[in-house]
């Protein structure tokens, strides 16, 4: 598959800090890409460069094979910022029309597409409602529609599920899958790991302005696995005190958590258990959650940074 976006040694320094400090990334077309990092890691600054809001101090952004041109390429990008909102006094339909036209659609095109999207989300009757009369969830749905209305090739969603109830969360999630299946690329920025694990193919972890991890979700998990296995047994397993090819991390009634020693294979462990006459129900590897990996990698870095950035976002 073709690379839709490639960042090459991007740098953006602000007075008080290096917000983005030499980050290179490559994102394939049709991917759902998770951009992770703690608050103040530089995610927002990175995204603002990709959306043409900021110019990088150094480095290049290659968008669909050419150098990124903020003025003309923004029509192919849909961005839903974390700090998002709509004109409260404006009618829903006019608002959608306005934002679509700013993305370069003609009045007629915009109206057609709004019709399709409003129908899909069951919003047809909202056209003449004012935004301030919508509930929070309805507002978020409208915000999402205005982000993807112009069929962008690249969709960037910054914390898209914050403030959404489970029903609407699922609705948006399904849309994300559908859009990716239709060929759009999605960058999904968050610090909520469970969502990333569920949705993304690829992730990159950013901390203190630098990329510290990059790869597929399964690849990253493989990389950080600790050879942990869960063995379910028929009744409590009585292990003899003789030398074992693994260490027991935890043992409950019928569950046995074991960690293989260096150089030991699964089969050796299984054989040992079988030799002990233990009835095995299941044998499963436990991969670390992204959350664990995230905490492990980010832990120990100064927390003060997140305050520093809050105060001085630019």
């Amino acid at each position: 598959m073709a690379t839709i976006l490639s960042l090459q040694h991007l740098k953006k320094y602000f007075e008080s800090q290096k917000a983005v400090d030499d980050i290179s990334l490559s994102i394939e077309e049709g991917q759902i890409f998770g951009l992770l990092g703690p608050n103040g890691a530089g995610k927002t600054t990175l995204i603002r460069m990709i959306t043409g809001i900021f110019y990088p101090d150094q480095g290049d952004i290659i968008f669909r094979g050419k150098k990124f041109d903020p003025v003309n390429d923004v029509g192919q990008i849909g961005y839903m910022p974390e700090e998002r909102g709509l004109y409260k006094k404006m009618k829903v339909g006019e608002q959608a029309l306005y934002l679509a036209q700013l993305k370069g659609l003609s009045h007629r095109e915009a109206k057609e597409k709004i019709g399709v999207w409003f129908e899909r989300f069951g919003m047809e009757s909202w056209w003449n409602k004012k935004v301030e009369d919508l509930s929070k969830g309805m507002g978020q749905k409208l915000q999402f529609v205005t982000t993807v209305l112009h069929d962008p090739r690249l969709i960037i969603l910054d914390e898209p599920f914050s403030g959404l109830d489970p029903v609407n969360s699922n609705l948006i999630k399904d849309e994300i899958y559908r859009l990716a299946a239709n060929g759009a690329t999605i960058i999904f920025s968050t610090h909520r790991m469970e969502q990333v694990e569920e949705i993304c193919h690829h992730i990159a972890l950013v901390n203190r302005g630098k990329k510290i991890l990059d790869g597929t979700v399964s690849g990253v998990k493989e990389q950080f696995k600790e050879n942990l296995f869960l063995v379910e047994t028929e009744g409590p397993a009585a292990l003899s005190a003789i030398e074992r090819p693994f260490t027991v991390v935890e043992q409950t009634n019928s569950k046995l958590y074991i960690q293989l020693a260096e150089g030991q294979s699964r089969n050796q462990a299984l054989r040992f258990l079988l030799d002990q006459q233990i009835g095995i129900v299941s044998f499963k590897e436990i991969l670390p959650s992204l959350n664990d990996i995230f905490i492990k990698l980010v832990e120990g870095t100064p927390v003060s940074r997140s305050f520093e950035t809050k105060k001085d976002l630019l």
């Binding site: 990008i77 961005y79 700090e83 909102g85 993305k103």
Partner: peptide
């Protein structure tokens, strides 16, 4: 100020300068 408090500013600047 309205654009800032409504948090629409960043949405708009991702489309126009």
């Amino acid at each position: 100020m309205e654009e800032k408090t409504n948090r629409i500013a960043e949405v708009i600047v991702s489309s126009v300068r």
